[in-house]
């Protein structure tokens, strides 16, 4: 042990004491928090992109009735999903998904339920972000590709999305940081993440203030590190400001 405090007297000592005594629990909690946040966010992003792209599908007047009816139905379902998950708190969603699935006979571990809720929640927010990101790209980009015979799907994949992606990258980073912190509500469905660790550690000694200080520091460090990481990525994505002239193609004047 680093400090070897056996009989803590003030708050600072209690913080250190609890952190050391329950170090395993806090480490496990941190790992689980990261696991849920990362997997939930990545899968949520994928879901968000799919839903966002579906919402962007344009139904043309010339399309036949069946095709436009099917598209309208799918779009309506996506719309309802987005509205519901943006309009209810994640803590309530966690309870409903977890207990709802149990009651209907689906045995889902609390971690799996936690990831599922995170995915659904992230997907709903990302869908809106992706839609806005796509809308932010000048229609000229789309037309430029279409006018040369590129299919609408390829136009979306190779021209519009890469540009939209750059625009929504900061928002994606934001969503991840939010998720990192929002995993704390999953303690209500008995996920052994950081918040649960603090709750347990604090309860054993009736030292809640100190126990939550420990995880506050852990959450802060995690968020700080990730937010720096994201700024680095954003900088990388901006690319070079200058370019190299291809002198081999210069013509003698």
């Amino acid at each position: 042990m680093l400090f070897n405090i056996t009989e803590p007297t003030n708050s600072l000592e209690w913080v250190i004491f609890l952190a050391e005594k329950y170090s395993n629990m806090f480490i496990q909690g941190t790992i689980l928090t990261l696991y849920i946040a990362i997997s939930g966010t990545i899968l949520g992003f994928i879901l968000g992109y799919v839903v966002g792209l579906i919402q962007d599908i344009r139904i043309r007047k010339e399309d036949n009735i069946i095709k436009s009816a099917v598209f309208k139905l799918i779009k309506a379902i996506c719309r309802i999903y987005v509205e519901i998950f943006r309009g209810t708190p994640m803590i309530v969603q966690a309870m409903i998904v977890y207990y709802g699935l149990r009651q209907s006979g689906v045995e889902l571990s609390s971690v799996a339920a936690g990831i599922l809720v995170t995915v659904l929640n992230t997907g709903a927010y990302m869908a809106e972000t992706v839609r806005a990101g796509i809308n932010s790209i000048d229609t000229g980009q789309r037309e430029g590709a279409l006018a040369m015979g590129m299919s609408p799907l390829k136009t979306m994949l190779f021209i519009v999305l890469p540009q939209a992606f750059r625009n929504i990258l900061p928002e994606m980073a934001n969503t991840f940081l939010t998720n990192l912190k929002m995993t704390s509500v999953l303690n209500v469905i008995a996920v052994q993440e950081l918040f649960m660790a603090a709750k347990t550690a604090g309860a054993n000694y009736y030292k809640y203030y100190e126990a939550y200080l420990v995880i506050a520091v852990i959450y802060f460090v995690l968020c700080f590190v990730f937010s720096r990481l994201f700024s680095l990525i954003e900088k990388k994505m901006e690319g070079k400001k200058d370019y190299v002239l291809a002198v081999e193609y210069m013509e003698a004047q």
């Binding site: 000229g140 980009q141 037309e143 430029g144 590709a145 006018a147 040369m148 015979g149 540009q163």
Partner: peptide, 15 residues
């Protein structure tokens, strides 16, 4: 469209 190319007023180069 691949046979009928188009050049736009606002260039529309892929950024």
């Amino acid at each position: 469209r691949a046979k009928v190319g188009m050049v736009f007023q606002s260039f529309n180069l892929f950024n």
